[in-house]
Design a protein around this nucleic acid. Structure first.
Lengths: 147, 147
DNA sequence: ATGTGATTTGACGTTTACGTCAACGGAAGT
DNA sequence: ACTTCCGTTGACGTAAACGTCAAATCACAT
């Protein structure tokens, strides 16, 4: 079974060894050792990928640990199932809202960019999207208040 | 034109006055004053909403400030348009990836929850999604490694 | 005049997620 | 044996985004 060194994984995921050790301190991964050096299994690598994705969607390391622990419990342990379901549900609706927020933001950014590009091509029909300087005229700020 | 006090807005948005003052320190909002007290306009309120949404989608306060400034520039100022377009584009692709990550996470959470609920209803057909305790069996962790 | 409540300005504390040395330890090439 | 690389363990530093007092002010009701 293939293994990885800490710097291998760090390079692959674009993070520092320090970060990976930190995740270990926080008990998100427990690589084996060969002497004093850490040895990472493919499973550790997957966990690392999950950790990073968790981070990208806004989870804290503690939350990510909880979720990874939930995955681990699969090996036949007892847990508070209903509580788990509730947590998952909460998490899901949080994510759904987050996704909605992102879609709003994307929409605004896209229209803003579009208007800017119109301005650019008006001033300079040969523009290749890389010239500097210009004048910005106006995309309003009115939406955004929910609830 | 209606105005708001700091605690009014704090209550409405579920944050503390301290947070709002902090945003002012960081120059994301500039309410007027009545004596020593801060007075918030509807426009300030909208900015606050935008700030909070920005936060939810993962922007830092500095980034949010930059974007709000860009919106403000609409009043006829000069800026580096092409740079702006580039920044917007970068931001857009970041958000798109984030959205994809969220959709992955949502998928996993939903299927995990579904399996748990199946287990729950097997053990207890009368379950109303609030009972405690149980046994969890297994949803695998294999996807998630992109690039 | 005095108490009550909201607000303000410091100023220091806190949490999260690492960054940044420093000093040391094996392994491997020459 | 010596240097050159990783890699390891502390230990301290840091940036972001507020939290948490404390002390003072001000508007108002009693």
């Amino acid at each position: 079974m293939k293994t990885y060194s800490i710097s291998e994984l760090a390079a692959e995921f674009g993070i520092t060894p320090r970060a990976i050790r930190f995740y270990e301190d926080e008990e998100l991964i427990k690589p084996t050792r060969q002497g004093q050096s850490r040895i990472y299994s493919p499973r550790d690598r997957v966990r690392l990928a999950l950790i990073l994705r968790g981070k990208r969607v806004g989870f804290s390391l503690i939350e990510i640990k909880e979720m990874l622990d939930l995955y681990d419990i699969n090996d036949g342990q007892v847990t508070q199932l209903a509580v788990t379901v509730r947590k998952f549900s909460e998490r899901i609706s949080l994510l759904e809202r987050q996704r909605a927020d992102i879609e709003h933001a994307l929409e605004e950014l896209r229209t803003a960019r579009a208007r800017i590009e119109v301005l650019l091509s008006e001033k300079d029909p040969h523009h290749k999207a890389e010239e500097p300087h210009g004048r910005l005229i106006g995309f309003s700020v009115n939406s955004g208040v929910h609830d």
